[in-house]
Nucleic acid binder design. Sequence first.
DNA 1: TTTGATGCAAATCATTTGCATGGGT
DNA 2: ACCCATGCAAATGATTTGCATCAAA
Lengths: 128, 128
Amino acid sequence: MKANTKRQTRQLQVIWEAIKDEKSHPSADQVYEKVRRVMPSVSLGTVYRNLQKLVADEKLQVVTVGRTQRFDPTVEKHEHFICEACGRVYDFFVDSKRKIFSSSLPSEAFTVTSHQLALYGKCKSCQG
Amino acid sequence: MKANTKRQTRQLQVIWEAIKDEKSHPSADQVYEKVRRVMPSVSLGTVYRNLQKLVADEKLQVVTVGRTQRFDPTVEKHEHFICEACGRVYDFFVDSKRKIFSSSLPSEAFTVTSHQLALYGKCKSCQG
DNA sequence: TTTGATGCAAATCATTTGCATGGGT
DNA sequence: ACCCATGCAAATGATTTGCATCAAA
């Protein structure tokens, strides 16, 4: 907790506690509902603002599914599999990315700073 | 023009004309503005509905940039480079994708039906 | 005490939808 | 004539923001 985070408020602590071990890639609203249980007076705006801070501090990553941002406490570089049946998001790791990307750029004049790879399909719980 | 498209309306024709040779990956609103010039009475809702039809008919592809859908008349499978400085979107093609993806799935129990790869950075017009 | 953070509500942005009317077929 | 498509406006969903007040430092 540093950089963009200037004050250690109780709501920031509670929000971080609510998401730090989440594997479900919750939306801001889902985080809000979870935080509400322990701090009913929290506001949705505060949840949004603190999630932004955590992202800026690189304690969270964002995955966009449809029109909704979802938050992932796994910050190591990784990719996502999005189940089109149930909406669940799964993390997975690829090692051989670097060479793939650098060999297929539109031109050397393009500087790549990041990338995003998402696979869509049916997860194992939704087969059949 | 078939499948989901049941009627050949003038607005559908005009909307298709407006986007079919576009390289700029316009948003619905940008298509609307362009269509308005030739058909001032068109409504934004109609533009949205017809863009959806064209996507369903596989005459257009969607690229999501931030919270906004952008439309691409290039329907062959390809990837996107998104310039974080100017917002422009560039198409590019990768051949060796298949082997990469199939070798890095979370598990064989996951069925992948599509994927989306986007590179972010600075395009050649925005260097320096 | 100072000033960033909060709660609340209103605002914004992109997109969708309900409904009466219009226009393809 | 049928009934899908349109124009319009209101509704929706996600997220942001203005502002008076509160509480970390």
